[in-house]
Amino acid sequence: MPDKERKEEILSRLKNIKGHIDGIIKMVEEEKECEEIMLQIAAVKNAIEKVGYFIIESHAAECLSSVGNKDDIQRILNIMMKFLG
């Protein structure tokens, strides 16, 4: 689990993404132009990826600092690569 400061930042980012998605829903309901909607979807996609990287960074720093076992290190790296892949 990330420290309190990182957890707050992750939650803040996720809440921001949630608000952004609500905005996209409204745009679809109001039949906004496809280009506008797709631009907002791309922004949400990028924001989600950034949150994922932030979580991976936090997890890796926390987990790898206390791991002495090669199998555990490989398991953590495999989790990270699944997200990145």
Rank of each mutant, 00 (worst) to 15 (best):
M1T: 12
F54T: 12
H59T: 11
N16R: 15
A43K: 03
A47P: 02
Q40H: 01
S58C: 08
R75V: 14
D72N: 14
E33R: 01
V28L: 07
V51M: 08
R13P: 00
R13C: 03
I48G: 03
E5L: 11
I24Y: 07
V67E: 13
M81S: 09
S58N: 08
E36W: 06
E62V: 14
G19F: 03
F54P: 03
I37Q: 06
K15P: 07
I17R: 03
K4P: 07
S58K: 04
I48R: 00
K26M: 11
V44P: 00
I73S: 14
F83Q: 07
E36C: 03
E31A: 11
G19N: 04
I48S: 05
A47W: 03
K18C: 07
K18H: 12
K50D: 15
I56K: 00
N16L: 10
I17C: 05
G68T: 12
E5F: 06
N69P: 10
G52I: 09
M80I: 15
D22R: 11
P2F: 03
A47F: 13
A43G: 00
F54C: 04
K70H: 08
E35I: 13
S65P: 10
R75L: 13
E9A: 08
L64S: 02
A60M: 15
I37R: 01
N16I: 00
Q74M: 08
K15F: 04
V51R: 00
F54W: 05
M38E: 11
V67N: 05
S58M: 00
S58W: 05
S12Y: 02
S66F: 06
C63K: 01
E49Y: 15
M27Y: 05
D22P: 00
L39Y: 04
S58G: 14
L14F: 01
I41G: 01
E33F: 07
L39Q: 05
K45S: 12
C34H: 12
N16F: 09
G52Q: 06
G68F: 05
K18E: 15
A60Y: 13
L39N: 13
V51L: 13
I21H: 03
M38V: 12
K18L: 10
R13H: 09
L11E: 12
K82T: 11
K70N: 09
M81Y: 10
G85P: 01
K15G: 05
E29G: 15
C34S: 02
F83E: 11
L14H: 00
E29D: 09
E5D: 12
F54I: 04
D3L: 10
I48L: 15
L11S: 05
V67L: 14
I76L: 04
I17S: 00
K18R: 14
I76S: 07
I37G: 01
I21M: 09
L14Q: 02
L77K: 08
S65C: 08
V51P: 11
K45D: 09
G68N: 14
S66Y: 07
Q40G: 03
L64Y: 04
C63H: 03
I56W: 08
N78S: 10
E33Q: 10
I21S: 00
K7C: 06
N46A: 15
I55K: 05
Q74P: 00
I24W: 10
E57V: 01
E57D: 12
E49T: 07
I73P: 04
S65M: 02
F83P: 13
R13D: 04
D3C: 09
Y53K: 08
